[in-house]
């Protein structure tokens, strides 16, 4: 980026824009944006379709979900029966254990689990990513290569010993296994390093250092504000994957009150010896997805704001 900044400065800026081509440029622009919109809207429909299926599926009686040929719209109109069952609003059911099923509680658990995990992840990974991107110190390359190497091990090998470890630490039925071990991850450090390398000019760090800023001040006052976009990207990715994590959670979180929503919903999935309860599963999934979408929609603006309002120009 350093070079980029200086190269930008060296480009001669003409005082007058090329006025005579303006109209044709605009016409081209209109066509270009028209095509762009057409393409994006077509693609959006494809991307929306499965989500639509889930939403409309959650509003169908099971009879309509179990059809030889799938239906796009319930013939008798949408119904909220599945939601009422899940929220236990004046419905009696014969489904075993459903009276112990508290979907809002589970969603809250998942949100709590993911929020703490993400705050830790974003902070520690940005810290380490900055150091690897901008600092010079002995054994830096070896230390970084080691981080990359740890990514190569297939996670499934870890599984059994990790579980044993969690048991010995007494962390069963707690959220600690989801907060602590993942607080600094190879993926996150690698990503933040690459983001910081291509975003923050060395000059900025150097001048701050000369001004006597401590490293922690540089990270919190300069790097983090500029990297807000990257941190949001990392945060969203981390949030969704922790929120939707299933295998580990299903083994560690067994108590009814602390289960996450994905673990709870898995019971409707059916197994080789039980038919799935698609209606409840779809409705539960819609409810579980709403907080994720809200979070994404709120934070995705940040991704673009980042640098333009940041410290570089200032």
């Amino acid at each position: 980026m350093a070079t980029q900044m200086s190269s930008a400065a060296t480009v001669p800026v003409p005082t007058r824009p090329a006025v005579k081509t303006r109209r044709s440029v605009n016409a081209r622009q209109v066509i270009r944006y028209g095509l762009l919109y057409a393409f994006l809207i077509a693609l959006s429909i494809i991307f929306l379709f499965p989500f639509y299926s889930m939403v409309i599926g959650s509003m169908m009686p099971k009879d309509e979900l179990f059809r030889l040929y799938p239906v796009l719209w319930p013939p008798d109109g949408p119904t909220l029966t599945a939601y009422r069952l899940l929220l236990k609003i004046d419905v009696t059911t014969t489904i075993q254990n459903l009276e112990r099923f508290h979907i809002l509680r589970y969603i809250f658990n998942s949100l709590l689990l993911a929020t703490v995990a993400v705050l830790l992840q974003v902070f520690f990974n940005t810290l380490a990513g900055y150091v690897f991107a901008k600092r010079q110190f002995p054994f830096k390359n070896q230390l970084f290569a080691f981080i990359l190497l740890t990514m190569l091990m297939p996670t499934a090998i870890n599984f059994v010993p990790f579980y044993i470890l969690i048991g010995r630490l007494g962390w069963m039925n707690t959220y600690l296994p989801f907060w602590i071990p993942g607080a600094a991850s190879a993926f996150g450090i690698f990503m933040m390093r690459q983001f910081i390398v291509s975003t923050i000019p060395d000059e900025l760090i150097d001048s701050a250092t000369i001004d006597g800023a401590s490293q922690i001040m540089i990270v919190t006052r300069i790097v983090m504000p500029i990297m807000a976009g990257g941190m949001v990207v990392l945060g969203i990715l981390g949030f969704v994957s922790v929120y939707n994590e299933f295998v580990l959670s299903s083994l560690i979180l067994k108590d009814n009150d602390i289960r996450t929503v994905q673990v709870a919903l898995a019971n409707f999935k059916g197994t080789s010896i039980r038919a799935p309860m698609y209606d409840l599963m779809f409705a539960g999934s819609v409810m579980a997805t709403i907080p994720l979408l809200l979070i994404f929609f709120v934070f995705q603006r940040k991704i673009i704001q980042g640098i333009m309002s940041g410290a570089i120009k200032g």
């Binding site: 299903s250 067994k254 108590d255 898995a266 019971n267």
Partner: peptide, 14 residues
Amino acid sequence: EQPEMAEWDKAVES
């Protein structure tokens, strides 16, 4: 008590 277990075979192994 029967906690709902979607993949109890795996849980047993663990």
